[in-house]
Write a protein that binds this DNA or RNA. Structure first.
Lengths: 330, 330
DNA sequence: CTGAAAGCGCTAACAC
DNA sequence: GTGTTAGCGCTTTCAG
C-alpha cells in the first residue's frame, strides 16, 4: 500500500517551498509569481501525478469541499433529478456531493444534520421531510455551514421552490376552460408546504369563479392512498374531474377510475403535478404541471457555492395531456 | 461563527487526557478502562454536545469514513435504488455516502475516480459506464481504496451482479411455454456486460429448443432507440413477440406496437427486464425479470465496510405480466 | 489503565 | 516573490 506524494515532495522536486506549491494549487499566485517558478511547480505536480489530500485541506481550512443533499427519498425520481442538479454544479466547482437519504423520517434527518456538521460541509441542500429540527440547523449555521431549503418551504430559512400555488391555479383554470365543473381534489400531506400551496392554488381558481370543490381530501403523496381515496370519493360523489397533488397520485386515481368503469377523460378528467419522467409512459398521457426539479438543484448548489443564499421562486409550466379534454356542457 | 468543542476541551472538562477521550470515542477502552473514567468522559461529551471532526480523523488515519457510489445516472430509478442500498448500510455504520454521477461519460467517471482518491474514501461502489479506466482504479487500489463493481461486470474486478443470463433464459422459456415462437430481441449496448448476458440467456433458451431468433438488434438502453428499432423490425419481419433488454425499452416497444395497430399481448408479446418501480404503472402490466437493485447496493456496501470484497451473483425472479399471455398455436 | 508527545498534509501569517 | 513556521483536531505509539 503505497502512499501518494505530498506537497513537500512536489516542492522538493520543483526546488521550491511547500507554500509556493500551495499557492499555485490555490491560484494565490500572490500578486505576481514568477512564471518560471509556476511552471516548474506545475511540471513537478504533473511528474508525480500529485493530487492534494482533501482531509488535510479541510482540517486546515475548517471547511471541506463538499456539498450535501439531504432529501426524503432518492429513489423518488423527482428528488433524484434535484440531486442530479446539485451534483452537476458541485462537480464543476471541484466539489464532492454527499447524498443523505432521510427515508422520510425526521429523526434520521436530524442525525444526518449532525453528521454534516461533523463533516464541516460547505453547504446543505435540504428537502425536509416536514418541519426540520431547528437546533440542528442552528448549530450548522453557527459553524458557518450554509443551509438552503429546496422544493418545500420552511419558515425562517432561505428556500428555492417552484411556484406551486400559481401552477395549481393555472392548471385548475385549464380544467375549468375545458368544461369540467364538479371537481374533487386529493391533496398531499398537510405538513408539507407544496401540498398546501397546490391546494391553495386550486381553491384560488375555483373561488375566482365563485365555485367550490366537490370535496378535498388530504393523503400522503403515495399511489396507494390516492387510489383508495379516489375509489371512496368516486363511489360517494358526483364528479367529472379529480385533481391530484402529484403525478404518482394522479396515476392512482386513473387506476381507480378504470376499475370503476369511468373512462378517462370522457367520464372523468384527471390531473397531476410534477411532470416526472416516467409519467410520459402512462396512457392516456397525463395533464400536469412541470416543476423544474433539476433547476432547483442547480440554483441551490450555485448559491451555496457563491455564499449568497436567498429565497427564489421558480416559474412552472402547464403540460396539457390526454387525461383532460374538452367536454360538452352538461 | 462559533467553533465546535474539540477533544481537548472534552478532556479538560472530564479531567483526563485527550488520548483517553479518543479511546472511549473509538471503543479502544484498552483492555479495561476504569468505568468511572469512561463515565466522566461520556458525561463531558454529552455536556459539550461534542462531535469529533471528521477531517482531523481522516487526516490522521489516512482514510475517511466515507463510501462512494459512482454510477452512470442517478435519475435512473434502477441506479437510484442501488444507491439507496449503499446509503442505508453506510449510514448504519456511521459513514457518509458520496454520490458521483458519471453521466454515462467515461471521462467524467475517470475524473471522479481521481477525486475519490483525493478524498481517501473507504471504498467505492462502481457501476461503470463501460470499461473503466484501469490506471485510475489501480491507483485507488495502491492507496488501499477498495473498489467493488456492481450490476455490470468488469474483468479482473470483484463484482456484485444479478444472474442476468439465467434470468433471461427463464424469461424466454416462459414466452416459449406460452406459445410464442417468432421472437425478436432488442439488446442493450454491446459494451455493457448485462446486455451481453441477457442476450446470451435469450439465445440459450432458444438453442435448447433448436430454435433461433427472428432477429437481434443492439441499441442503447433507451426508450427512444427501442421505439425506433421496434418500428423498423415490426415493419420488416413476421413475429409474435419482442423481448427487450430492459423495462424502459420494453415500454418503447409497446408504444411502437400500439402505433402500428399491433395489440399487446394478443398480436405481440412484449417482455422487459429489471422490474423498476414505475413499470407497475404501465398497462398492460409488463412481463419482466426482477433484478434486486437495492440488494446489490447493500451487499456491495457491506463488503466494502467489512473489507472482504469478493464477487457475488444474486438470483433473479420472473415477474409474469399481461404483456405476454398464452396463445393458441399457429 | 492513563498521559505525553509526535505528526498526518496542508495553508496562511509573517518574515525577508 | 518566496521561504519559514506554526498549527488545524485527531490518533497512536511509547512511557510509566
Amino acid at each position: 500500500m503505497i502512499r501518494q506524494p505530498t506537497i513537500r515532495q512536489v516542492a522538493a522536486l520543483a526546488g521550491v517551498s511547500p507554500s509556493t506549491v500551495s499557492r499555485v494549487l490555490n491560484g494565490n499566485d500572490g500578486q505576481h509569481m514568477r512564471p518560471a517558478t509556476r511552471d516548474r511547480v506545475l511540471e513537478a505536480i504533473h511528474e508525480l501525478d500529485y493530487t492534494p489530500q482533501r482531509a488535510a485541506r479541510s482540517l486546515r481550512r475548517q471547511r471541506s469541499q463538499v456539498l450535501a443533499i439531504l432529501l426524503p427519498d432518492i429513489s423518488n425520481p423527482f428528488f433524484a433529478l434535484l440531486a442530479r442538479g446539485v451534483e452537476a454544479v458541485a462537480f464543476d466547482a471541484g466539489c464532492s456531493t454527499l447524498i443523505c437519504d432521510s427515508d422520510n423520517l425526521v429523526p434520521k434527518e436530524t442525525r444526518y444534520l449532525s453528521l454534516l456538521l461533523a463533516e464541516r460541509v460547505q453547504g446543505v441542500v435540504l428537502v425536509p421531510v416536514a418541519q426540520p429540527d431547528r437546533d440542528a440547523i442552528d448549530r450548522l449555521a453557527r459553524c458557518g455551514v450554509r443551509v438552503v431549503v429546496a422544493d418545500r418551504e420552511v419558515r425562517g430559512l432561505p428556500t428555492i421552490s417552484a411556484d406551486n400555488r400559481a401552477g395549481s391555479r393555472m392548471l385548475t383554470e385549464h380544467l375549468l376552460e375545458l368544461g369540467y365543473r364538479q371537481i374533487a381534489y386529493i391533496a398531499g400531506p398537510s405538513d408539507v408546504s407544496t401540498a398546501n400551496d397546490r391546494l391553495a392554488g386550486f381553491l384560488d381558481a375555483l373561488r375566482a369563479r365563485n365555485m367550490s370543490p366537490v370535496c378535498v381530501r388530504h393523503s400522503p403523496y403515495t399511489y396507494e392512498s390516492a387510489y383508495a381515496t379516489a375509489k371512496a370519493i368516486l363511489a360517494r360523489s358526483v364528479l367529472d374531474a379529480i385533481v391530484a397533488a402529484n403525478d404518482l397520485m394522479a396515476v392512482g386515481v386513473m387506476r381507480a377510475a378504470e376499475e370503476l368503469g369511468r373512462a378517462v377523460p370522457d367520464d372523468l378528467g384527471v390531473a397531476g403535478f410534477d411532470h416526472v419522467p416516467w409519467a410520459a409512459f402512462v396512457r392516456p398521457r397525463l395533464t400536469t404541471v412541470e416543476v423544474p426539479a433539476r433547476h432547483m438543484g442547480t440554483e441551490a448548489a450555485r448559491m451555496l457555492l457563491e455564499g449568497s443564499v436567498e429565497s427564489l421562486l421558480l416559474p412552472v409550466r402547464i403540460i396539457p395531456g390526454e387525461t383532460c379534454s374538452r367536454r360538452s356542457m352538461r
